[in-house]
Design a binder for these strands. Structure first.
Lengths: 203, 203
DNA sequence: CACTTTAGTTAGTGAGGTATTACTGGACAG
DNA sequence: CTGTCCAGTAATACCTCACTAACTAAAGTG
């Protein structure tokens, strides 16, 4: 209305509000009108900053993508053991989801991916990166002798990512009735214990 | 056009076509018009059989729900070991998803659940049943002494369901680039091996 | 065959959404 | 102080949908 901001500021403001609204309303109900209202601009005002709604979604996707990348790379520490790094990666991911609850809905929404081509690619390549990071750490754990010999590394990675995804879905569909990072840490510990070489155990 | 069917037949026809279209178009693009065209009826013709679109979705949900229930109960056999029953349950679920590829998109779509209340409840109660079945079998496995003592039954169930869900998502988002039942059976074997008591192993 | 039932059609309404066009007025440069 | 750029607005075109009303005719029923 009265306030008039620079295009740059507005753009990030729009992206952030869109992300918040995607959670509150659900990604499909994220209309340009709703975003405009949240930002405090008339509906066509959005189109000053994003030529199409798809462009807006793409910007949101890239914003998310960047958040995730940063969180993962923050989580990794050379001084940690590979197992600790794995736990840190999982924890970082779950905390990011908790902080940005629209994430699972956006990442897993086939609706969005089909309606706005380009999103899928952004997310797919980013999630592939996550798998690479996990694979590296798991391979390091194996090199350190902390893994059961009969566990194929790639299989371990799939089990871990499935754990994260399954948990995220249960959380986001199930009214978020539990603490995602807490439950995740607990179950991850269980899974990692199963992965661990039976050193101190029997024998 | 010329053909005129009994309401009963048409109803199931509509439900089945809707389910197929939900896969081809994505659940959100499943319009009454698209369903009508697939069935060979004008768009308002759908409303002779379902008062609202929500009613149609509800019928689809109940159809799915029944398919799943039947598949699960077919999978269970008293003469099988608990571990075999678990494998059968997982396999049945994955085969069902492969056969009805819209399943993950429908089950995991937050859009649908929020737009059409009632769906969530149908699916939630059905999926809870799956967990119960898995829990029973895993408990039986424990009673038979085939499980590691340090694995909490409930945790094992979560790990298994996460495996199924994670796999289903990867499959449905990732262009279905692998055989869901095959990959599932393989990974399930890995996970179950991790669950297994270390009897014949060391010592 | 006459009669009733009812699946299906044609035509239309209104809500909700993206996007365009033409205009307005604030911010900033010189 | 003035002119220019550009964020933002008002109005509206245009589309897709779910759903309704009134009518039509095919399929069962006696």
């Amino acid at each position: 209305m009265l306030v008039r901001k620079s295009a740059k500021d507005r753009k990030v403001e729009i992206i952030e509000k869109a992300l918040r609204l995607a959670d509150e309303l659900g990604p499909d109900r994220l209309t340009t009108g709703a975003v405009a209202q949240a930002v405090g601009v008339t509906q066509p005002g959005i189109f000053r900053h994003f030529a199409t709604k798809q462009a807006l979604w793409l910007a949101v996707a890239e914003h998310i993508s960047e958040l995730l990348r940063a969180a993962w790379h923050d989580a990794l520490r050379p001084e940690q053991t590979p197992m600790q790094n794995i736990a840190a990666l999982v924890s970082a991911q779950l905390r990011q989801i908790e902080q940005t609850p629209a994430l699972p809905a956006i990442l897993f929404s086939r609706e969005l991916s089909t309606e706005y081509p380009g999103l899928r690619q952004v997310f797919a390549s980013r999630l592939a990166e996550y798998q690479v990071l996990l694979t590296e750490e798991l391979a390091a754990a194996r090199a350190a002798g902390s893994l059961r010999a009969d566990l194929v590394t790639a299989d371990g990675v799939v089990l871990l990512t499935s754990l994260v995804q399954g948990l995220a879905i249960r959380w986001s569909l199930g009214a978020r009735g539990f603490s995602l990072p807490d439950e995740g840490a607990r179950l991850l510990a269980v899974q990692l214990a199963l992965f661990a070489a039976d050193n101190g155990g029997a024998r």
